[in-house]
Amino acid sequence: MIRIGIPRALLYYQYYPMWKTFFEELGAEVVVSPPTTQVMLASGSSRVVADTCLPVKVFLGHILALVGKCDYIFVPAIRSVESKVYNCSKFLGLPDLTRAVIPESPPILDIDIDINKGKRNLYQAIYQLGRHLTWYPLRVRRASQAAWQAHLNYHQLMSSRNLTPPQVIERISGTAEAEANSSYLISAQATIAVIGHPYLLYDEHVNHRLIHRLEQAHNRVLTPEMLSTEELQSAIARLVGRAYWTYEEEVVGAGAHYLQSGADGVIGIIAFGCGPDSVMMDVVRQQASRLKATPFMSLTLEEHTAEAGIVTRLEAFLDMIHRRKRSQVKTCV
């Protein structure tokens, strides 16, 4: 059986169930790299110039972790998934970058996704990808339909049941405890929304277990995936008109939504060296200071982030929210 490696980084959190279904329907075995570790991050960053952004360094670390464990590695170039909305250049060049800096990698399976070029182009791209595994166009077609269904189910599960991508992926793989742990919710002191790209929010190594820390401190945590596409898009429409970047929803959309409803505080997570994030998170920050209703804090994750910096800011942010809530209760009484 052909083994296809999928790095647990970047767009993994958005599309893994889709990709997995596609390749498995075509008879391949899917191998996922393990969760990020310090060694993986260091090995990834040793391959590129220091200025490269943190998420790409992490991604390359995952590619290196897959070398020798699979026959192919799947690295799509996702240019655009919406009309006239484009992705960051790092995503466009990902397959080429990977080939250039990791020559020992198994062959890279890539696919160019660009909605602007029309449906026909998209179907052709999918057939070309499927060709590596089968000669029958009909099998590719069935596999892509099943994959699309898996993708819709995945996002529906997250938004309808307030689950995070790792929770749903664990469920799909059958390794999870059936329900999301909700015992802490009863004693939850505050609801904190964490916004940003999934590859930052759910990579516990990169974010120093941010969500875990928030839950440990008795807070209910909301993430962008828990909102429906309609909620995200209408929030973007209200704030900036129309999106400029692909994946702007999880930053600007989720930020704008949670600043207005549902959260006692919003924490924005950005990666050091990320161009689009630095602009998008600032839009959210400006909105927060205009509304003055919900406290907002942004945290920048770096390669060498000392845990102390994150812990102190988190503690202070939570104190601020708890004390604020308490003073509001006092005023009401």
């Binding site: 200071s289 003055k292 406290p295 907002f296 804090m297 920048t300 910096g309 102190t312 800011r313 202070a316 942010f317 104190d319 601020m320 004390r323 604020r324 003073s327």
Partner: peptide
Amino acid sequence: DGVVTDFGMNT
């Protein structure tokens, strides 16, 4: 109004 609403630390 006697409540912390925002803070910043050097990065």
